[in-house]
Design a protein around this nucleic acid. Structure first.
Lengths: 128, 128, 128, 128
DNA sequence: GTGGTCTAGACCACA
DNA sequence: GTGGTCTAGACCACG
């Protein structure tokens, strides 16, 4: 998996990393249990400060997407099928994007099509 | 419409305002053409500086959600039904949220239900 | 000649009026010596405050484009062929626009073509 | 490059800064990729508030003339040769200035000479 | 009345 | 170190 960051984006670098890793997991480019490169190695590879990588990894750990294995470093967490209600935080973020879509008068059909389209990129694990 | 601001959130106040105003427009609490409170009045009401309100209004103006009439103040813009493709920026934001949902193994059915549920809060103008 | 103003523009209304009147004169839609509508009449017609019209007229008078005839109201001034050096103020404004064009790497050929093209709209008096 | 600000001009300081930086880029005093002084340093130097500098930089960023690298600060953007049609906004500004020139009866020859003369100050990169 | 601009000084996020 | 955000209060431009 290739991580690409832009030094000119308004989005902080650690946030760009976090987002791309999440997309990578969803797309199956990073499998559950797969090991991530060490902070130092990744920092060298993409040319950013180790503190920045560390911040991204820590954020992802707090969110439950990554785990630290003392012996093996950092790896992707495993998730069971969700049984709880859809998380409020994601619902709020979703509401804001859908509000913008709605104001710009995209139809419900268009929006659902877009959502379905994006979802086809993910959930490769369903095929296993 | 009531705007509520948290001074303790990491989200900048002007961004909180922007988001709430967008939600307000989508929900129909702020009708197209409706006038917004003046920067000074709103600043007093929610206890922040006028420049903070000004920044939020300016951002919304740049995004096309508000218009300023030099004679009358600031009001909600009117939108025509969207004819262009779904904006890349919104699609990217949507992809990230859906990726998180997908990793947490919410099913496509659950996600589409959540989207539909949120959309029912909006588009009240379709019912008129 | 039709004046069109936008209440939503960042440009002050009096400035919009001034600019359109100057373009009107250059295009020959307003002939030298031609009388302009009274402040009150014009204010009614385009739906703005009389003070705004007045401000635009006064600005144009200060700049020498309009004259007030005590008996007949306001009319377009007459200009003799310029003999002085190109005015510094216009040169400065021109320099800024050309700087932007230059940075965006429009070629000298393109820019001169654009200038010539614009000039064909004007100078109808040369044909008289 | 020296920036000079007038506190007595009606032109807002942030606009004066923006204009001078654009001229500086066009003249080659600020090279593509060159780093600009930090907002704090520049604010000290010319004796204005950091927010004023920040506003000027932000405006130039929105217009694409500057870029902010989160690690290194703000620098001049690089431009590819323009391939699109001459921008309407610049054409409108140009038309207004040319209209004034035309009314004051500067000849097409004079105007083109002035334009060419100004352009020789710019585009130094073409000579390299 | 409206929004736009600016100051002086502060604190925070980011890298 | 960098830029981003915010305050409290002021003055100005516009209509």
């Amino acid at each position: 998996m290739i991580l690409e960051i832009s030094n000119y984006s308004e989005v902080p670098i650690y946030k760009q990393l976090r987002d791309q890793i999440i997309l990578g997991i969803a797309k199956g480019e990073l499998a559950a249990g797969e090991q991530l490169p060490s902070v130092r190695l990744l920092a060298d590879e993409i040319g950013v400060n180790t503190m920045t990588i560390s911040k991204a990894y820590n954020l992802l750990k707090e969110e439950g997407y990554l785990l630290t294995d003392r012996r093996l470093g950092t790896k992707v967490a495993t998730f069971e099928p969700a049984k709880t209600a859809y998380p409020q935080k994601l619902a709020d973020q979703l509401a804001l994007i859908l509000a913008e879509s709605s104001i710009q008068r995209y139809s419900e059909t268009d929006i659902l099509a877009e959502v379905t389209n994006i979802l086809t990129q993910f959930r490769k694990d369903d095929l296993k």
